[in-house]
Simulated scan of single mutants.
Amino acid sequence: MKFYRDDRFPFREPLLWIYASGVAEDVGVVVGVRPVAGGGLVYCEALRRRSRFLFPCGDAEAAAERVGRLLRHRMFPATW
């Protein structure tokens, strides 16, 4: 597996790139893990110089479902 740093996502933690293909253009989401107040961790979508909350860590299935809904929405925005 090749690891590299992408300047579009200047985060220190490892990032997971998730892609989906379909009738629409290929779409994807970049997911990382961030600490939050109180000592917890959350999955987040890595955006340019910031991140957006997706789901608390500890429930990977629920986080995967949230990422799946996000990708479906990006692939078929007119159906939402």
Rank of each mutant, 00 (worst) to 15 (best):
R74F: 12
A24C: 11
P77W: 03
C57L: 15
P14W: 07
A24G: 15
R66T: 06
V67E: 10
Y4L: 13
V27Q: 08
W80C: 05
M75W: 03
A64I: 10
D7Y: 13
P14D: 10
F55H: 15
G32I: 08
P35V: 02
L71G: 03
V29C: 12
Y4C: 08
G39D: 01
R12L: 10
V42Y: 05
L41H: 09
V42G: 00
S21M: 10
L16G: 02
D59H: 14
D6L: 04
Y4W: 12
P10K: 10
A62D: 03
D6C: 09
R12W: 09
H73V: 02
V29W: 04
M1P: 02
E65H: 10
F3S: 12
A62S: 11
A46T: 05
M75T: 08
P35W: 04
A24R: 13
F53M: 04
F9S: 01
C57G: 10
S21R: 15
R72E: 11
S51C: 05
S51R: 00
P56Y: 02
A62I: 03
R48G: 03
G68W: 04
F53R: 12
G40Y: 06
K2F: 12
G40R: 13
P10R: 08
V31A: 08
Y4R: 07
F55E: 05
E45F: 09
T79Q: 08
G38D: 07
E45H: 10
R5T: 03
L41R: 14
M75Y: 04
S51W: 14
P35N: 11
G39S: 01
A78V: 02
E61A: 15
G38Y: 05
L54E: 12
V29Q: 06
V29I: 14
G22H: 09
A46F: 15
L41S: 11
E13Q: 15
G22D: 00
E65F: 04
A64N: 12
V67C: 12
R72V: 15
R34A: 15
G32P: 11
F3P: 00
L54G: 08
G40V: 03
R48Y: 01
Y4A: 14
L15E: 14
A60E: 15
Y19P: 00
A78K: 01
W17E: 13
A24Q: 10
F11H: 14
R74C: 13
E13W: 08
A78T: 03
G58H: 07
R49A: 07
R8V: 07
F53H: 14
P10D: 09
G28Y: 06
C44L: 00
V42Q: 11
P14S: 07
S21C: 07
V27S: 02
P10S: 05
A46I: 13
D6V: 06
R50V: 03
E61T: 02
L70I: 11
A62W: 01
Y19R: 13
C44S: 13
V29S: 14
S51M: 01
V29Y: 06
Y4V: 09
F3L: 13
A37P: 00
P10F: 08
L54W: 07
T79I: 08
A24T: 06
Y43C: 00
V31P: 10
R5G: 01
F53T: 01
A78M: 03
L15G: 09
L41G: 01
G28N: 02
A20Y: 09
L15N: 11
V23L: 09
R74W: 14
G38R: 01
D7H: 14
R50K: 14
A62P: 00
